[in-house]
């Protein structure tokens, strides 16, 4: 993230420069396809053979240490490993599931972040910026998929997670993991194309797939989409997230704020005047002390 000149400038420059840069960012963000149809990755677990080439490519691309590829443990992503491959034994079959940030359409982490350190790039990658983050960890508390990880033993801790190789994709390349996969189990593209492809695969081979694309509607929809042969709860996916985008849950509160700020002071002043009207009466002596 440090490498991105634009945002570095944004963080370093004071006042007006930063504001101008932000305005620029907003203009870009409203470009036609970005918000409605971000880039994403379709992960077809029926094709994954668990070779871990993707996690190794990820580590290499982001200068992270050797990834943990131990099949016998259920792995979580860490600050040093942004994607993991977990093995599930379902009905005598070994199913491998890649796990990383879901790059939600409306990310909880972004809406939780009060410094805009966690933000979305124009083409839909959710990334974190060192210069802005104050380390409150509300992004971690809020993420439905428990993805952001924190450098607990650093005096200058970073929040780390998959950034969907946004720098590569801005240059027209595909993410490192997609590039590396020998089985074409993961493909990169616009979310609408990926959804169409997923529906096509399900229609062509209905026996191979459970009738559900994970990420199509979960938590309001994610840019990472999954296909599987068995129901997703058997593969360690969270199935209690609902289809409402997470930031929606705070909308009502946030709407209430300007109402309260606009209405309550006037109301209080009115009550104050009403209860202190005795001051105006001539026949009442001024307040006695105390």
């Amino acid at each position: 993230m440090n490498r991105r000149g634009f945002f570095k400038l944004c963080g370093a420059a004071a006042g007006s420069t930063a504001l101008a840069a932000r305005a620029g960012g907003r203009a870009l963000a409203s470009a036609p396809r970005s918000e409605t149809d971000p880039y994403g990755i379709l992960i077809d677990t029926t094709r994954c053979v668990g070779c871990n080439t993707c996690s190794e490519a990820c580590a290499e691309a982001h200068e992270l240490p050797e990834p943990n590829t131990d099949e016998d443990v259920l792995k979580d992503t860490t600050v040093e490993q942004w994607t993991v491959i977990n093995k599930f034994d379902v009905e005598d079959e070994e199913i491998y599931v890649k796990r990383q940030c879901m790059h939600c359409l409306e990310p909880a982490c972004v809406s939780a972040c009060l410094t805009e350190a966690m933000h979305k790039t124009e083409d839909g990658a959710v990334v974190w910026e060192a210069d802005k983050c104050m380390g409150c960890r509300l992004c971690m508390l809020s993420c439905p998929f428990d993805i952001p990880k924190y450098e607990w033993n650093s005096p200058n801790p970073r929040v780390q997670k998959c950034v969907r190789c946004f720098e590569r994709t801005e240059d027209g390349k595909v993410p490192a993991c997609v590039d590396a996969c020998p089985e074409e189990a993961i493909v990169f593209g616009r979310r609408s194309q990926l959804l169409a492809e997923a529906h096509k695969r399900m229609a062509e081979n209905p026996d191979d797939y459970t009738d559900h694309i994970y990420g199509e509607n979960e938590a309001g929809g994610t840019a990472m989409l999954y296909l599987a042969a068995v129901p997703f709860e058997e593969l360690g996916f969270k199935t209690n997230l609902g289809t409402r985008a997470f930031p929606e849950y705070t909308k009502e509160f946030l709407y209430a704020v300007p109402f309260v700020l606009a209405g309550v002071p006037a109301l209080l002043l009115g009550i104050n005047r009403a209860t202190h009207h005795r001051d105006d009466d001539d026949d009442v002596t001024p307040h006695e002390e105390g």
Partner: peptide, 11 residues
């Protein structure tokens, strides 16, 4: 200081 207004953030 207004460097970053996460206006939609509860925090």
């Amino acid at each position: 200081i207004g460097n970053n207004f996460g206006l939609s953030a509860v925090l």
